[in-house]
């Protein structure tokens, strides 16, 4: 039985660290659904990687152990499992997307109306196009994109998922 998990990984921000993480997945045929990385602590030179992946319990445990084994990795937290363990809601997850919709007439009006419902912001526009910025849960963005599809959607760029646990405990 396959399940989806979100891992938070704290690493030294040094060249090659992302390649090590990705190589670990690709070399073993594990799936990466989403991966984001940026420096989060300038002084300590730490980056935080958020990985959404799926696999069997055994594979997920293996992913965690293999990540922990990498020399520049400080901590690996399975946010999904930790939340379950504390009997809490799943971690807070957000994603940002930029969506370009090209069209005129009714379709254009309809696109704007849907964007309004989703609280998507218009960040660029001309007479024949919109660029919407939408943020939210992954599933929300998926739905927005599905609805925009017949209305002239021409380009999508998504940031990938970032996540933190709920409650007062920190990583």
């Amino acid at each position: 039985m396959s399940e989806t998990r979100t891992f938070a990984v704290l690493v030294d921000n040094e060249p090659g660290v992302l390649a090590r993480v990705i190589g670990l997945f690709s070399g073993r045929g594990y799936n990466i659904e989403s991966l984001t990385v940026t420096e989060v602590d300038d002084d300590a030179n730490l980056s935080r990687i958020t990985i959404v992946t799926d696999g069997t319990t055994q594979v997920l445990a293996q992913i965690r152990n293999l990540l922990e084994r990498l020399v520049p990795v400080h901590r690996v937290e399975d946010l999904t499992a930790a939340a379950e363990g504390r009997n809490m809601e799943p971690p807070v997850q957000r994603e940002l997307a930029l969506v370009k919709v090209v069209g005129a007439g009714d379709k254009r009006v309809e696109a704007l109306r849907i964007a309004d419902i989703f609280k998507a912001e218009v960040v660029d526009t001309g007479l024949g196009h919109f660029v919407f910025e939408i943020k939210g849960r992954k599933s929300q963005i998926d739905r927005f994109i599905t609805l925009m599809m017949p209305l002239g959607l021409t380009e999508i760029c998504r940031s990938g998922v970032i996540a933190v646990s709920r409650g007062d405990q920190a990583l």
């Binding site: 055994q58 445990a61 293996q62 152990n65 293999l66 922990e68 084994r69």
Partner: peptide, 11 residues
Amino acid sequence: IDPSSINKNVL
């Protein structure tokens, strides 16, 4: 000594 060796092939 290597946690990733545990439960890798055999539970």
